[in-house]
Amino acid sequence: MPQPSAIRRHFLGSLQAATAPKEPYPHWLLDGVLPLETAAAVVDLPLTPAQIGETFGKRDSHNESRAFFAGALLNEQPVCRNLAAGFQDPETVAALEQATGAGLAGNYLRIEYCQDTRGFWLEPHTDIGAKKFTMLIYLSTAPGAAGWGTDLYDKDKRRVGRAPAAFNQGLIFIPGDNTWHGFEPRPIDGVRRSLIVNYVIPDWRARHELAFPDQPVRAAG
Score class of each variant (00 low, 15 high):
P2W: 05
Q3G: 06
Q3L: 07
A6D: 14
A6L: 14
R8I: 14
R9W: 01
H10A: 01
L15A: 10
Q16D: 14
T19N: 00
T19E: 02
A20E: 11
P26G: 10
P26V: 11
L29Y: 01
G32E: 06
G32A: 00
G32R: 02
G32Y: 00
V33R: 06
L34H: 05
L34Q: 05
L34S: 07
P35F: 03
L36S: 12
L36D: 13
A39H: 09
D44Q: 11
D44V: 04
L45M: 15
L45Q: 01
P46M: 08
P46F: 01
P46N: 11
P46G: 01
T48R: 02
A50S: 15
Q51R: 02
I52T: 15
G53S: 04
E54V: 06
T55L: 04
D60E: 09
S65E: 03
S65H: 01
S65M: 02
S65G: 04
R66S: 03
A67L: 09
F68T: 09
F68M: 11
F69G: 08
F69C: 09
L73I: 00
P78F: 12
C80S: 15
R81F: 14
R81S: 14
L83I: 15
A84H: 12
A84C: 08
Q88I: 03
E91H: 06
T92F: 05
T92N: 10
A94N: 07
A95T: 10
L96D: 04
E97G: 13
Q98C: 00
Q98P: 00
Q98N: 01
T100R: 05
A102N: 04
G106W: 02
G106E: 03
I111K: 01
E112Y: 07
Y113P: 08
C114L: 14
Q115E: 09
D116R: 15
D116L: 12
W121Q: 05
P124Y: 00
H125K: 09
H125Y: 13
D127Q: 11
G129K: 04
A130C: 02
A130W: 11
K131T: 01
T134K: 05
T134Q: 10
M135C: 07
L136C: 12
Y138L: 10
S140M: 05
T141Q: 14
P143S: 12
P143T: 10
P143C: 04
A146I: 02
G147I: 06
D154W: 08
D154E: 10
D156M: 07
K157L: 10
R158M: 02
R159M: 08
R159L: 09
V160T: 12
G161P: 13
A163Q: 13
A163G: 11
A163D: 10
A165M: 04
G170S: 06
L171P: 15
I172M: 13
F173K: 03
G176N: 11
N178F: 08
N178R: 08
H181P: 10
G182E: 11
G182Q: 06
E184M: 00
E184S: 00
R186S: 04
G190Q: 14
V191N: 10
R193Q: 15
R193F: 08
S194W: 05
S194H: 05
I196S: 06
V197P: 11
N198A: 00
P202S: 02
D203Q: 15
D203V: 15
W204I: 07
W204K: 01
R205V: 09
R207A: 11
R207N: 12
E209P: 10
P213G: 08
Q215T: 15
V217C: 13
V217P: 12
R218D: 10
A219V: 11
